[in-house]
Simulated scan of single mutants.
Amino acid sequence: MYRIDLNCDMGEGFGPFRIGEDHELMKHITSANIACGFHGGDASTIRSSVKLALKYNVAIGAHPGLPDMAGFGRRKMDISAQEAYEMTVYQLGAVMAFAQSEGGRVAHVKPHGALYNMAAVDPKIANAIAEAIYKVDGTMLLYGLSGSELIRVGERIGLKTMNEVFADRSYEDDGTLTSRDIEGALITDSSVAAAQVVSMVKTGTVHSRLGGLLQLKADTVCVHGDSPGALNHIIELKKTLHESGIRIVKAGE
């Protein structure tokens, strides 16, 4: 039977500012990637996100990003491998402490934004992130772009990895995500997004923005919580997956 984990980036507001419909989204997903305070999130938001995930039996994940709140962690920064390692360890500690204090645990780690894209192609950054996760808790799952350098390095280090695909993003011919600066990078039609996911799960393929056919593995699918219409995306996606005979299951189950 076909199966897929459904994850969403969450807890990315801070203070009085809220991004996305986390309370509604959490009811429909199996894994939550919780911002750790660098690109979004703060102590109160992390705690409330952890509690919400536990309420709905959603796997808790840490979502470490670059220290760029103004740019939402989506602007590339010139960082060293050591800095990537240290900022990953630091951010994991924040979410792990809140999870433990509320009676839960962090099940997975997924880098955010520019850090995610950098790790997808840069072996040194990928190795630093994977090493940080392994040394903190080698039982945590590593979420990375399907077939990317981060997945390859994570497997080599000894982590269990989850090849991630995207419902609401388009792909380039090299398998990377289309830059958000390019028209067509974001998929806004929920039916198109759902059809893309079904293709990736059942055939292991997806068409790139320019029409090429890419081969990939789909273990988990992401819908960005801050995307316009994210809730509609997820509701339509769940419906389409069910009709297509694809089970939505929590990673590792």
Rank of each mutant, 00 (worst) to 15 (best):
6 L>D: 04
121 V>W: 08
163 N>M: 03
245 G>V: 00
115 L>K: 08
110 K>M: 06
156 R>N: 15
48 S>V: 11
18 R>E: 12
53 A>P: 03
18 R>Q: 13
103 G>W: 10
188 T>P: 00
230 A>Q: 01
177 L>Y: 06
25 L>Q: 02
184 G>T: 07
25 L>D: 01
219 D>I: 05
56 Y>P: 02
53 A>S: 12
6 L>K: 04
70 A>S: 12
93 G>E: 05
113 G>T: 10
122 D>K: 10
36 C>D: 03
41 G>E: 06
14 F>T: 12
71 G>R: 10
123 P>D: 14
176 T>A: 07
64 P>V: 09
75 R>N: 14
175 G>Q: 01
170 S>I: 00
42 D>A: 11
167 A>R: 05
70 A>Q: 15
27 K>H: 02
32 A>R: 07
185 A>H: 02
227 S>R: 05
64 P>N: 06
10 M>H: 02
234 I>D: 08
238 K>L: 04
44 S>Q: 14
124 K>N: 14
20 G>M: 00
132 A>V: 13
249 V>Y: 07
91 Q>Y: 08
82 Q>G: 01
46 I>Y: 03
237 L>T: 03
6 L>W: 08
95 V>E: 05
181 D>N: 13
61 G>C: 08
33 N>V: 03
176 T>S: 15
91 Q>W: 06
102 E>R: 06
129 I>F: 14
176 T>Y: 07
109 V>C: 08
111 P>D: 06
36 C>K: 01
124 K>E: 15
14 F>C: 10
249 V>T: 14
196 Q>I: 01
16 P>C: 03
192 V>T: 11
99 A>C: 01
157 I>R: 15
19 I>K: 02
230 A>K: 00
33 N>G: 07
113 G>M: 09
108 H>T: 08
210 L>K: 14
248 I>G: 11
232 N>D: 15
140 M>Y: 06
100 Q>E: 15
165 V>Y: 04
59 A>K: 09
137 D>W: 09
37 G>N: 02
122 D>W: 13
108 H>M: 10
238 K>S: 12
220 T>L: 09
9 D>Q: 02
102 E>I: 00
27 K>A: 04
34 I>M: 04
41 G>H: 06
121 V>Q: 14
225 G>H: 00
87 M>R: 11
92 L>G: 10
123 P>C: 14
192 V>G: 00
44 S>H: 13
170 S>W: 02
224 H>F: 00
204 G>A: 03
201 V>F: 09
37 G>F: 02
119 A>I: 12
88 T>Y: 14
93 G>L: 09
243 E>G: 02
213 L>E: 12
162 M>V: 14
234 I>W: 08
142 L>R: 11
3 R>L: 04
44 S>K: 13
84 A>N: 09
119 A>C: 12
78 D>I: 00
189 D>E: 10
45 T>D: 04
160 K>R: 15
31 S>K: 06
36 C>P: 02
113 G>H: 06
189 D>S: 03
144 G>Y: 09
86 E>L: 13
118 M>T: 13
136 V>D: 05
113 G>A: 08
201 V>S: 03
142 L>S: 13
165 V>Q: 05
